[in-house]
């Protein structure tokens, strides 16, 4: 238990360092890319090249990903300032979200299946 907690802590520090590298890189190169995306890509490159072994970050990553949804709660509470908007256009927004999700699911599904069928022929 104590061992696991220790692993989680230092592995999160490692993930945090890569995150900071991503933020600094994006800032230095003036990219219009979020720093956390750059961090994720750096980590993927480190894993793919074998510089970082998966076990080195497995426990910490597992913990953060298991409770990923927790971090969305404090952000969503900010919605309290949009009560007026929700009352006024809540239904319209719901229609937009629903319609665009239908379009996205259908387009992705159909495109991939078509590409796979063409390849099989």
């Amino acid at each position: 238990m104590a061992r696991k907690l220790f692993d989680i802590c230092w592995q999160i520090v490692l993930l945090w360092l890569v995150f900071r590298c991503g933020v600094l890189l994006v800032g230095a190169l003036h990219l219009s890319l979020p720093g956390n995306v750059a961090g994720m890509l750096i980590m993927f490159a480190l894993l793919a090249s074998g510089i970082v072994k998966p076990v080195l970050i497995e426990t910490g990553s597992g913990f953060l990903l298991k409770h990923f949804a927790f971090f969305f709660i404090p952000i969503s509470v900010g919605l309290i300032s949009f009560g007026g908007l929700m009352r006024q256009s809540g239904l319209e927004l719901l229609v937009i979200l629903f319609a665009s999700a239908v379009v996205g699911v259908a387009v992705t599904g159909a495109t991939v299946q078509l590409l796979q069928q063409r390849r099989e022929r």
Partner: peptide
């Protein structure tokens, strides 16, 4: 949240 996003690489 930053480190958690980096963890998505795994």
């Amino acid at each position: 949240l930053g480190p958690a996003t980096v963890a998505l690489a795994l």
